Simulated assay, not measured.
Amino acid sequence: FYQNHETIRMLRGQQHRIRFTDSVEAGAFIFPLSGIAFLLVDPQDPQHQESVLVERLSKFVQVHRNCFVLLHAPFNGPKEMDTLSLIQHRFFGSNLRTLPVRSTVDIFKGMLAIAKATSKPHVDNIRDQLSLARAHIIEYSPVWEMLRDMIDD
């Protein structure tokens, strides 16, 4: 199922390399340059009984440091909300983040946005911009000026 998923076709359409191996969980998308792994979960899939889903996600979290579960929920029915609640409660405080997605386009856009934002050149650029913003705030903030004046007195 996952090898023929529309998301795979979209990724290949933008020249992303896709490889399938037995060592990677079915439904997993791994972006090695950013160190991010995504696992696609469909709450309507009969294979995703609570115990099976928790075991599958536990393995995924153990293998991948930076991981997201893409909870494919085209609508917010009781099954989708129960699955979301289960994941959030069971994996609270872990390195697993949950991204509810409604469509294949949402899956595609979400994965690429996160992978791009966490890849090496972009992370360095964001870090530099934050440092410049912090320096600007400290230099021109009236609060910092007041504190400097209080220290000088």
Rank of each mutant, 00 (worst) to 15 (best):
H5A: 09
F75V: 13
G77Q: 07
H136D: 13
S119L: 06
D82R: 13
L40P: 04
V69P: 03
I114F: 07
S131E: 14
I8E: 04
S131T: 12
E50R: 15
V143W: 09
H48P: 00
L70K: 08
R102K: 15
R17M: 14
I126S: 04
S58I: 00
P100Q: 06
D22E: 14
I30A: 06
S103I: 01
L147W: 04
P142N: 05
G77I: 06
I137L: 11
P100V: 05
Q47A: 14
G110Q: 06
G93S: 04
D128H: 10
A28Y: 04
G35T: 05
N125T: 09
D149C: 10
F38A: 08
P43Q: 09
H16P: 01
Q88T: 15
L112H: 02
V61L: 01
K120C: 01
Q88Y: 08
I8H: 05
L40A: 03
I138C: 07
M111T: 05
Q62C: 08
L132W: 09
K109E: 15
Q3R: 14
A135I: 02
D106Y: 01
E50D: 11
V54C: 00
E145I: 10
L33P: 00
I8M: 05
F108V: 02
F38E: 07
R19M: 10
F92M: 11
T98E: 01
E6D: 13
S141E: 02
V41F: 02
H16C: 13
V52C: 03
L53K: 03
K116Q: 13
V69C: 11
E50W: 02
F29R: 03
F60I: 02
T98R: 00
L86M: 06
L40F: 02
H48Q: 14
R97P: 02
A37N: 03
